[in-house]
Amino acid sequence: LFHARFEQAGLVDAIKDLIQDSDFHCRDSGIALRNMDNSQVAVVVILLEAGGFLPYHCDRRLNLGISLTSLTKIVHYAGDEATLALKANDNPDTFNLVLECLQTGCIIKYDIKSRDIDQEHLEIPKTDYAATITIPSAEFQRICRNLSQLLESVANEASEERIKFSSSGDIGSGSATLRHNSDLTGPIALTISLKYLVNFSKATALSYSVTLSLSSEVPQLVEYKVESGFARFYFAPQIGE
């Protein structure tokens, strides 16, 4: 039997534009998801430890193949205040989704067929980054959204005290600068697609702050800590031609 109740259903919204289907690996320690987007440019890794759910019960290993497109629609219509529960019994072909609105007591139940997702395991090597910078997640989202209105990619520069996001396109250029008090091994400069950063920043509601782990020429990591877990977004670097 598997039963998990989750109060941060907004997590689904943060990843739905990157991945359409995913295996949810359910273990007694919690739920994990690791998936690459179709363009092979971004990877989403989510870990939700059992302690973050009330209740959490999983007495055997279970892989639920879930359509995030469908899950998003279900969660969207439930509203922000709803909690989301996943239940599965010994039949691995279907699972139950239960949405509960605590304010009104309304309960919506679905029986959903588990999708057969032929998903390969992805090995992510441990990386030492030149800069690990933590900034308010709302500021990060504001910067990404603002610059992306006019421009396509962003150059990140970080020094001891400031991180600078700058961007240029046909209409001109723009930049945003933010103070931080994180450790850097040295100044860095790299370019990232703004479209993807805007996508990652949809996880803003999950956490007050976001941590950017940056080095030239290796995948960048954008991480949101959630209660008893994390949502990590890896992004392949752009290189000059």
Binding site: M36, Q40, V41, E123, I124, P125, T191
Partner: peptide, 14 residues
């Protein structure tokens, strides 16, 4: 001109 790399050059599928 910037060219987008694939993550598969960094991460391997097992």
């Amino acid at each position: 001109v910037q060219k987008q790399q694939s993550l598969l050059s960094f991460f391997t599928k097992a």
